[in-house]
Amino acid sequence: MLKMTDLHTELKESIVEQLNLEEMEPADISDEEPLFGDGLGLDSIDALELIVLLEKDYGIKLTEPEQGREIFVSINKMAQFIEENRTK
């Protein structure tokens, strides 16, 4: 299993690549920064991409779309959720 810090880095790299954040480096995203709204500024299409990313990379299928609101708050929250629920 990856260490927590490695998972954080991996997540940031996946987000930059998957969401085409061309102007950003993974290191530009802080662990606590809000991913949506005033923080990184992601939108609803990005939320769909993150749901696909969770299932494809970590085997986590979100059954309740509402869960996304709690999980995609920040890199820290996402990493914690992945550690607790990953199947691969």
Binding site: Q18, N20, I45, L48, E49, V52, E55, K56
Partner: peptide, 13 residues
């Protein structure tokens, strides 16, 4: 590539 599963929404949209 993904055998019709887990498709990214952006290119579809």
């Amino acid at each position: 590539d993904q055998r019709e599963d887990l498709l990214n929404p952006t290119p579809f949209i």
